[in-house]
Amino acid sequence: MVGKNNRRREPLTDAQLLMTISIGIFAAMYVAAMIFMGGGFLKAQQIFDLLNDNSYLIIIACALTIVMIGGGINISVGGVISFTCMACAIFLNGTGIAAGPLGIVLALLLALGIGLGFGLLMGFLVSYLEIQPFIVSLAGMFLARGLTTILSVNPVKVAHEGFLELVKSKIKISWLGYVAQNGNLIPAKIEIGTVVAICVVIMMYVLLRHLRLGRNIYALGGNRQSALMLGINVKRTCFYSYVISGLLSGLAGFVFLMHKPAGNASVAMRSEMDAIAASIIGGTLLTGGVGNVIGTFFGVMILATIQKIIALSPLNASWWQEMASGAMLGVFIILQSVVLSHRGKKAKE
């Protein structure tokens, strides 16, 4: 009997509820687009395009979600992407070992190293010196952007043949494809970056859900003082959350380069803001303690779908995209506070 009672379904947690809402909204939006816009939205490729174009965003949104659950923030992720792209592009264009196939692996390690470096530095400043995370990561953002420009003011195109091969290589799934007007079957194409991004989402989900570190991060964001009293090493937990987010931003930089093989000082401009928005839409609270990466994944998809819908509509203009994204964010924050305060009232009764 006890065992049965044990597995009894508990009411949804705040995070699960918010995530469910965002999945629901994504589904409703996508179905509406299929009905009213038809065309591209009826093809499976549309979903894959959204993923291919936004794989880097999914990764940094996960990075943001983790620090935000811990009650912090990291706005340096976009800067780290641009720096990583530039550094890897220049490295791949070098001679010697870099020019060979091994160069790709080394470039990946370089990207991860840069991300790790930023993560360690910012994590140390935030956790052990207790400086405001916003300030620290703002400084990190300027530093990364500055370093990018020092490497090269002009865009650097990757000329490494092996790498370009990698950029072009796509996983093709023919049964999800469609028949073009000339009768040829065009299979659905998935970029490597998308696969990486999905793997990141799964890994971060497992980390947050099942590993001790993940639960400690939730505890930290839920109530820092309590977490301390419960015997959690809050400084180390906080430090690791920044290290992971730094590492993920480096990886996102490499994924970005696999999508657009060129280093450029203005790359991924403002993407940290999109990542924060996606996290919030996916149910992460800025106050910490609540959120999960599955929700964040759908947060990215919601933002991407809005942009796609507007791009395909007569309103196609960047300000419409921004306004729609902004409105969506506003609606979500209001919805979240309404839902949570309603639940708070009910829980008290």
């Binding site: 508990e10 705040d14 639960r215 939730y218 505890a219 964001g221 109530n223 977490a227 419960l230």
Partner: peptide
């Protein structure tokens, strides 16, 4: 001094 966002067992 507990964390409201975690489960009772946690």
């Amino acid at each position: 001094t507990l964390c409201p966002n975690l489960t009772v067992a946690e």
